Simulated assay, not measured.
Amino acid sequence: MPKRSMMQDDPLEDFERRTITLAGVSKVVYVGGSGPAVIVMTEMPGISPHVARFARWVRDAGFTVYMPSLFGRDGAVAGAEEGAAVFQRACISAEFRAMAANQSSPVTKWLRSLARLAHGECGGPGVGAIGMCFTGNFALTMMLEPSMLAPVLSQPSLPLNDPAGIEIAPEEVRAVRERLEREDLTVLAYRFAGDKFCMAQRFAAYAEALGDRFIGRVLSDSAANRSDLSPFFQRYVTTPHSVVTAHLIDEVGQPTIAARDEILAFFKRRLSAADS
């Protein structure tokens, strides 16, 4: 994959820009690649060059990427004020439950439908998904869709006002745990040790809810990239946070690259034809 600047807007020209309507709701989705489907859900404040880079890594590993536009300006390096405005709109949007523990964001119903559609289009045993930051927990709720087989939670940050809360309804998390145990599936999750948005209490809550089906990885703060950060990140994300995007160090041997590679291997293992 050619190197691109993370400090310039990404035109996303190597993805197909589709408008997908599900249950009467239309969203733009960037699609590219071939093979089993993986849904890449953006972190706040939108599909940044860092998020697009990760999506390309997934695509180039042998998957069809579906990257829905959920908020923000697609491909943008967000300014501090622009990013803050996106964040504020998302917090009051009816699609998200930013401040409520034990509730699932309504947008996850649309995302489950997207997984079903992607599985029908791409075939294979099922679908993978990764959520990041604001969308970090969504891949877990998406496990209510039978086609979802490989959920990854990267720095899940909701609910914002309860470090020990998880953003999924109790009856849904019970259903997900039953499915994980019944089908011998697992959930991968990542955070930095000093992340102020996704703290140790949250991973403890996931472990309590999901038992040994939850595999949480905690990276040292020293493993985080501190350069080439957008103005939004420089002002508002002041601790290591984005494991596979903004705070990833793109060098061989780095812990964040190891995390990326583990995620890609997880998708390959769960979505290979041998597992069907």
Rank of each mutant, 00 (worst) to 15 (best):
F134A: 08
F134T: 05
T135D: 09
T135C: 12
G136T: 09
A139F: 02
A139S: 15
L140D: 03
T141K: 02
T141C: 08
T141S: 15
L144R: 13
E145R: 02
E145F: 08
P146C: 10
P146V: 09
M148P: 10
A150K: 05
A150H: 02
A150E: 03
P151M: 06
V152H: 02
L153E: 13
S154R: 00
S154E: 15
S154Y: 00
P156E: 07
L158D: 07
P159H: 09
L160V: 12
D162Y: 06
P163C: 10
A164G: 15
A164H: 08
G165T: 09
I168G: 14
A169S: 14
P170K: 13
E171T: 12
E171L: 11
V173M: 13
V176L: 07
V176Q: 06
E178R: 14
L180G: 04
L180Q: 04
L180S: 04
E181P: 01
E183Q: 12
L185V: 08
L185Y: 01
T186G: 12
T186F: 10
L188P: 04
L188K: 12
L188F: 12
A189Q: 05
F192D: 11
D195W: 06
K196I: 12
K196E: 13
F197A: 15
C198L: 03
C198T: 15
C198G: 11
C198D: 14
A200M: 10
Q201E: 15
F203V: 00
Y206S: 01
A207T: 09
E208F: 01
A209P: 01
L210T: 05
G211T: 04
R213C: 13
R213P: 00
F214E: 02
I215Y: 00
R217A: 04
R217L: 01
V218A: 05
L219T: 09
L219A: 10
L219V: 06
D221F: 01
S222P: 00
A223E: 07
A224L: 06
N225E: 11
S227A: 14
S227Y: 01
L229F: 02
P231M: 06
F233K: 11
F233Y: 14
F233A: 14
Q234W: 00
Y236M: 04
V237D: 01
T239G: 02
P240D: 06
H241D: 04
S242P: 00
S242Y: 01
A246E: 14
H247W: 00
I249K: 14
E251G: 03
G253L: 10
G253E: 11
P255S: 08
A258E: 13
A259K: 03
